[in-house]
């Protein structure tokens, strides 16, 4: 598997660590109403669709950037790769 890193180009998946659903980017506000429920959703309810999915990948053996990879989990086609800090 190859990931087209937005700064470094195509890099082998062995350089990366996978962390699943990119919804982890949307951490709830701790002061919000029902923050407990929101954090439980945030921590435990992840999407795992057969199809297009936004995922987090970490370029641990590279430039240490966290990436948001839009990937079709059925065909393994990668549709988009972005730096997490720019999303």
């Amino acid at each position: 598997m190859l990931i087209d890193h937005p700064l470094l180009g195509l890099r082998d998946s062995s350089e990366f660590i996978y962390m699943g659903d990119a919804k982890l980017l949307n951490r709830p506000n701790w002061k919000s109403q029902n923050s407990m429920t929101k954090f439980i959703d945030y921590g435990y309810l992840r999407k795992n669709p057969a199809g297009v999915h936004k995922e987090l990948w970490y370029h641990e053996q590279g430039d240490r950037s966290w990436l948001v990879v839009t990937r079709n989990t059925v065909t393994h086609e990668i549709l988009k790769v972005e730096l997490a800090r720019e999303t």
């Binding site: 660590i17 962390m19 987090l56 970490y58 966290w66 730096l83």
Partner: peptide
């Protein structure tokens, strides 16, 4: 380090 980088870049 991985988790700190996650906080730094993503949160």
């Amino acid at each position: 380090l991985r988790n700190l980088e996650f906080v730094r870049q993503c949160l």
